[in-house]
């Protein structure tokens, strides 16, 4: 077994286990922390696939900024205790069964695939910032600019939503 394969299996196991923990842990703060772990594992996978730029972005934006935002909101609203009422057992069973069936059916649909991935020496420049940046600012400059507008509107939306209503009394 090559070192790459070993790493692949370790990261996979970590990702799956952490994901399960995200779903099953009672405390939201724990969920967030487990989710950060999932993202780290996924970052590892990106590195294995020679997608360095995405790995870094994933780490910084997702595991860093977004998860901190989650954590902040949870702390802010003081939700870290286990106050969540449980759904009924039957509903949860139904949920697990349907999720499992979805997995099964998707695997059945996609399994006949002969592609493979190997790590060769000298290849893999596409995942580097130079190549991605070139393409992003030439071919994809319009979507890039549009996404900046999206950010702007998201910002405005967040401010508008988060503002305390002063004129109308709270419902």
């Amino acid at each position: 077994m090559h070192i790459t394969e070993i790493l692949f299996w370790i990261l996979t196991a970590l990702a799956l286990f952490s994901a399960l923990m995200v779903v099953s842990s009672d405390n939201p703060v724990h969920s967030v922390l487990w989710l950060i772990l999932v993202f780290m594992a996924i970052t590892g996978h990106y590195i294995l696939m020679n997608a360095q730029f995405l790995a870094i972005v994933n780490m910084i934006v997702y595991a860093g900024a977004i998860m901190v935002l989650f954590l902040f909101v949870i702390m802010f609203m003081n939700l870290n205790k286990d106050s969540e009422p449980q759904k009924s057992v039957w509903l949860r069973l139904a949920a697990v069964v349907s999720g499992g069936s979805l997995l099964l059916i998707l695997v059945a649909a996609l399994k006949d695939n002969g592609g493979y991935i190997n790590s060769m020496k000298g290849e893999g420049s596409i995942g580097l910032i130079k190549n991605l940046g070139n393409t992003l600012f030439t071919e994809y400059v319009v979507p890039f600019e549009i996404s900046s507008i999206l950010f702007l509107s998201a910002m405005v939306g967040a401010v508008v939503l988060g503002k305390k209503e002063s004129s109308t009394p709270a419902a």
Binding site: S98, G99, L102, I105, L106, A108, A109
Partner: peptide, 16 residues
């Protein structure tokens, strides 16, 4: 969401 998931499953089963 449950209905959505079940529908997706049904679509896939149907297609297969």
């Amino acid at each position: 969401v449950l209905i959505m998931t079940v529908s997706i499953i049904l679509f896939f089963i149907f297609q297969l």
